[in-house]
């Protein structure tokens, strides 16, 4: 319990240090690149939460990311103020997940088909938004633009003050603060009764049912929380480029986020964050070298991890560190070892 609290405080502290240190140590290009990496980390957290803790295998988390992005774009253009648009970018994916999740979980759809359905929904949304070119497809003042997407989306302004637009450095602060906030929120949920029941259902749905919990409800709640987080990610993604296009719904987006989680470590929160940043950095590095195709890099990374480090980075590093300390202490009894392994499952 104590070590879990210590690691939580360390992660938050490191996040805050990075938040304030980065603008002083890198140029504007580097800062903007890190901003989009952090956006992807938020997206990765949504997948890591529902999959790693809720045991829900969604192949279509991009649907909620894209919905968040498009909702923000449409709302911001219509309102001329980002405050309400941000709220909508969280609410709309949440409602969509509530509807979709209700049919999936209360319809007793099996795990494999949940993967198929979420995947299909993403493909449908991709084709739907792709087909919205022309003046006819306009929501209020906002043309959806079909395959070309929506350019010049008004970016974040000070809450309630549309005349003060945030500059890229301020957007960095907002983005990474959001990531830290989402992390803290998820840690809080996992420590609460709700989180413990969510994990218990992942461990054994039958037992959870027999002690009086309705797994359908808890899975639905998990799914909605995940969708809302993905929505925030999508909203910040639109803000990063002042632009959004149907590629956010592309299969590559859903696949990428799964790879972030696998590489970083399933069943952890830090893992998806590090996985996202690391892989995004690797892809952009490979892209700038233009020697190898970035998709090839992604593929090689995935294959290497599945074969060599199937549990992901964070669990491996954590085991190595605790093993090192136990050897140094020399007195690491079996009891203590079991305790740290317990903490690992929880973190």
């Amino acid at each position: 319990m104590k070590s879990a609290l210590a690691s939580f405080i360390t992660v938050v502290a490191l996040g805050i240090v990075l938040m304030f240190a980065l603008p002083h140590t890198t140029d504007m290009f580097g800062l903007m690149q890190m901003t989009v990496f952090v956006v992807m980390a938020i997206f990765a957290l949504s997948q890591g939460f529902i999959w790693g803790y809720g045991g829900i295998m969604s192949f279509g988390q991009a649907a909620f990311f894209g919905l968040g992005g498009y909702t923000y774009a449409v709302a911001a253009i219509n309102f001329g103020d980002s405050t309400g648009a941000v709220a909508l970018a969280i609410i709309v994916p949440g409602l969509f997940a509530a509807l979709l999740g209700y049919f999936m979980f209360y319809g007793r759809i099996s795990d494999a088909y949940i993967g198929v359905i979420t995947l299909t929904v993403t493909v449908i949304l991709f084709n739907l938004i792709n087909a919205t070119s022309g003046d006819w497809y306009t929501i209020g003042n906002a043309p959806l633009g079909g395959f070309n997407g929506m350019p010049s989306v008004p970016t974040l302004n000070m809450p309630g003050d549309p005349s003060t637009i945030l500059d890229p450095e301020q957007l960095w602060y907002v983005t990474i603060a959001t990531l830290i906030l989402v992390y803290v929120l998820l840690r809080g949920i996992l420590a609460s009764r709700l989180g413990r029941v969510i994990v218990a259902i992942r461990e054994n749905e039958t037992r959870a049912t027999l002690i009086g919990y309705d797994p359908r409800l808890y899975k639905l709640i998990t799914f909605i929380i995940g969708a809302m987080i993905a929505g925030i990610g999508g909203c910040l993604y639109t803000n990063w480029g002042a632009f959004i296009s149907p590629t956010v719904f592309a299969l590559a987006m859903s696949a990428q986020v799964i790879i972030y989680v696998l590489v970083g470590g399933l069943g952890t929160l830090l893992g998806p964050i590090l996985g996202a940043v690391l892989i995004q950095w690797l892809i952009s590095f490979a892209g700038s070298q233009s020697a190898v195709d970035s998709n090839l890099v992604l593929g090689v990374v995935l294959v290497a991890f599945v074969l060599l480090v199937p549990q992901g980075l964070v669990p491996v590093v954590r085991d190595t560190i605790t093993g090192f300390w136990q050897r140094r202490a020399g007195t690491g009894s079996e009891e203590q070892k079991q305790t740290t392994r317990g903490a690992e499952v929880r973190s």
Partner: peptide, 15 residues
Amino acid sequence: NVFNGLSVHENIFVA
């Protein structure tokens, strides 16, 4: 039917 990945305490706690 137990929660295999959780500790004894957490099994009882959730119940």
